[in-house]
């Protein structure tokens, strides 16, 4: 693989890891608050469909983004109501949301647009389009590093840059602000937070709202950034890979960036390696590379490469003592 091809793969790795990264951070905020969420997939679908539909209706990417965040936060609130207020099983609630969002998007899509569940392509104003960073054209002429700047760093849309900024913002929020410290505390020892007079319920709801907002951005990126319009089930399991990435990153924001980039890179190279014969290995089945993130996660979970320790109070509803 020469430098240009490699840059090409890296470029698509950046595009493909963006939704993973956003969803992974979304999961991070809620799981750090002690609410397990396997409904990331469903929230992303809700966001993607809302973005796709509203972009067609209004032709405005920003309104579509807001709609995506709204739809996804709505499901976050449903999840929080079921898990925090009703103290229901968090896994079950997440599974339910995945199906509800998938089914609802298809039903509404078919009824509104009649194209078998997909939305028509929005006008250009309804999409987030590529941004050329300053001096990219000049840099492209200036050797391999310049090429890297022009091909990989420049030329993405706004949501990509937001996604790659988000881990650092999240780190700051979680470890340098009062809200973040409380949020993490509520995932480790809610009784202590409660004793200190801070509302466990409110913190866990906030975790779900942030989670919903980030999933909404991820969904909007899929529907009006990476693609033009919503396709049925367009998240294609990314919510689950994001969950795997979250475990891999051991529930920390900055490592999440690197894990998501790695998973995005695997995805990008799987497309590229189709039918290519590698030296000394032969043809690697493309399905194997696609399965690699999942296999790696299982190996990690088995404790063979480091230990992934989840937030202590994750998955357990908090019951106030009387």
């Amino acid at each position: 693989m020469d430098w240009l091809t490699f840059l090409n793969v890296l470029d698509s790795a950046v595009r493909l890891s963006t939704p993973l990264l956003l969803a992974c951070l979304a999961g991070l905020f809620t799981e750090r608050a002690g609410v397990v969420d396997i409904g990331l997939e469903g929230k992303m679908i809700a966001g993607a469909f809302a973005a796709g539909a509203v972009a067609v209706f209004t032709g405005s990417a920003w309104i579509a983004l807001l709609a995506a965040i709204g739809a996804s936060v709505f499901f976050g609130l449903v999840h929080a109501f079921a898990c925090v207020t009703q103290r229901g099983n968090q896994i079950v609630a997440g599974v339910a949301i995945n199906f509800i969002a998938l089914g609802l998007a298809a039903v509404l899509g078919q009824s509104w647009f009649g194209q078998g569940g997909k939305t028509p392509a929005p006008p250009n104003s309804g999409r987030f389009t590529a941004i050329e960073l300053p001096y990219a054209a000049e840099a492209a002429q200036m050797g391999p590093i310049g090429r890297f700047y022009a091909d990989v760093v420049s030329g993405h849309n706004l949501l990509v840059y937001f996604a790659f900024l988000a881990p650092f913002l999240s780190w700051w929020l979680l470890s340098r602000t009062r809200f973040g410290l409380r949020l993490r505390a509520v995932g480790e020892n809610p009784a202590a937070v409660d004793t200190a007079g801070v509302s466990v319920t409110r913190l866990r709801y906030s975790g779900q709202i942030i989670c919903g907002a980030l999933c909404g951005v991820a969904g909007a990126y899929l529907a009006i950034g990476l693609n033009a319009g919503y396709l049925n089930n367009m998240t294609a399991g990314r919510g689950y890979i994001a969950l795997a990435a979250l475990i891999f990153a051991k529930w920390r924001p900055v490592p999440a960036l690197f894990v998501c980039l790695l998973f995005g890179f695997l995805d990008a190279s799987a497309n590229r390696l189709q039918g290519v014969s590698l030296p000394s290995v032969g043809v690697v089945p493309v399905q194997f590379i696609q399965a690699l993130p999942y296999i790696l996660t299982v190996i990690l979970l088995a404790g063979f490469i480091g230990k992934a320790i989840p937030p202590k109070a994750g998955g357990v509803p908090y019951v106030k003592e009387r």
Binding site: V95, N98, G103, A106, V107, S111, G116
Partner: peptide
């Protein structure tokens, strides 16, 4: 009405 109405119902029943 999309056939995916079923998936919606399934999700609601789980919820």
């Amino acid at each position: 009405i999309s056939r995916d109405m079923l998936i919606l119902i399934q999700g609601l029943v789980i919820l």
